[in-house]
C-alpha cells in the first residue's frame, strides 16, 4: 500500500508541468524514504531527477517499494483538476494497476478523486556520481529563465563560461551575437535577487538552448536555481524544493564532431 498526503498539492502540479514536455512517460518510484522519478528525454541527452522526501509529506506510507509508470500528459490533465490550494493525496495498492489522486479543498467542502491508469514502462536507471564541480552559480530562477529565453532569439546554443569575473552566457546566430554576464551579488537588498558563484577553476561548456529553456519550466518551484559545471561533463540544473527535496536536470554538453 502506498499513500502520500501533500498539503501543498500544487507543488506536484508544478513538478509535472516542469517535466512533461521533456519526458512523456515515466516511472515514479516509491519507497519508505520518499517519492522519486528519474527519466531521460527521448534523445537521451538530458535527464530529469526528482526527489521528494517522505518527511516532506504530511502523511507518507509505503509498505513495499514500487514503481508506478504514468503518462505525464495524462497526469498533468488530472492535476489540472485540483484547486490551487487543495491538499493532494495519492493512493495505490501494491498490486494494482491504477493510482488514485484525491483533492480536498482547504475548507473541506469539496472532495474529488481521480484514478489514473498505470502503464508498464521500461526504463534504465542511471547512477549519477558525486561530482566535484569546477563552478556552481546560483541565480534567481526568473533570471535564468530570462537569459535562456533572450538568448534563444539569437541562437540555438549557448556557451556558458565561468571565470573569476562572473558567469557569461554567449550565443550567436544569423541575427548576430549576444553576451549576458552575471556577477556575484550576495549583498542584494532582496534575498531573491542574490547571485552567488562558487568557482574552483574556470570552465566553459556549450549547450543546446532548447533543453535549458525546457528546464526553466521549473521556475515556479523555487526562488533560485543552481547551475553546476565541470569540464566535459553534463551540467546539473538544480531547483531545490523547500523542505522536501529537489528537481534536477542534467544535460550533455555539445562537443566538436
Amino acid at each position: 500500500m502506498f499513500e502520500a498526503r501533500l498539503v501543498q498539492g500544487n507543488l506536484l502540479k508544478k513538478v509535472v508541468d516542469a517535466v512533461k514536455d521533456l519526458v512523456t512517460d515515466a516511472n515514479f518510484d516509491c519507497s519508505s524514504s520518499g517519492f522519486t522519478l528519474q527519466a531521460m528525454d527521448n534523445s537521451h541527452v538530458s535527464l530529469v531527477s526528482l526527489s521528494l522526501r517522505s518527511d516532506g509529506f504530511e502523511h507518507f506510507r509505503c509498505d513495499r517499494n514500487m514503481s508506478m509508470g504514468m503518462s505525464l500528459g495524462n497526469l498533468a490533465k488530472i492535476l489540472k483538476c485540483a484547486g490551487n490550494d487543495d491538499i493532494v493525496t495519492m493512493k495505490a495498492a501494491d498490486d494494482g494497476d491504477t493510482v488514485t489522486f484525491m483533492f480536498e479543498s482547504p475548507k473541506e467542502d469539496r472532495v474529488s478523486d481521480f484514478e489514473l491508469k498505470l502503464m508498464d514502462i521500461d526504463s534504465e536507471h542511471l547512477g549519477i556520481p558525486d561530482t566535484d564541480y569546477a563552478a556552481t552559480v546560483t541565480l534567481p530562477a526568473a533570471e535564468y529563465q530570462r537569459i535562456c529565453r533572450d538568448l534563444s532569439s539569437i541562437g540555438d546554443t549557448v556557451v556558458i563560461s565561468a571565470t573569476k569575473d562572473g558567469v557569461k552566457f554567449s550565443s550567436s546566430g544569423d541575427v548576430g551575437t549576444a553576451n549576458i554576464t552575471v556577477r556575484q551579488n550576495t549583498t542584494a537588498d532582496k534575498k531573491e535577487e542574490q547571485v552567488s558563484i562558487d568557482l574552483k577553476e574556470p570552465v566553459a561548456l556549450t549547450f543546446a538552448l532548447r533543453y535549458l529553456n525546457s528546464f526553466a519550466k521549473a521556475t515556479p518551484l523555487a526562488s533560485h536555481v543552481s547551475l553546476s559545471m565541470a569540464r566535459d561533463l553534463p551540467v546539473m540544473v538544480d531547483y531545490q524544493i523547500s523542505d522536501m527535496g529537489h528537481l534536477r536536470f542534467y544535460l550533455a554538453p555539445k562537443i566538436e564532431d
Binding site: 541527452v45 535527464l47 534504465e124 547512477g127 543546446a208 553534463p234 550533455a252 555539445k254 562537443i255 564532431d257
Partner: peptide, 14 residues
C-alpha cells in the same frame, strides 16, 4: 558541427 553524447556515456546504468 557539434553533437551531444548519450548521457549513458557519462553516467553508469544501474
Amino acid at each position: 558541427a557539434d553533437k551531444q553524447r548519450n548521457l549513458k556515456e557519462y553516467f553508469n546504468t544501474v
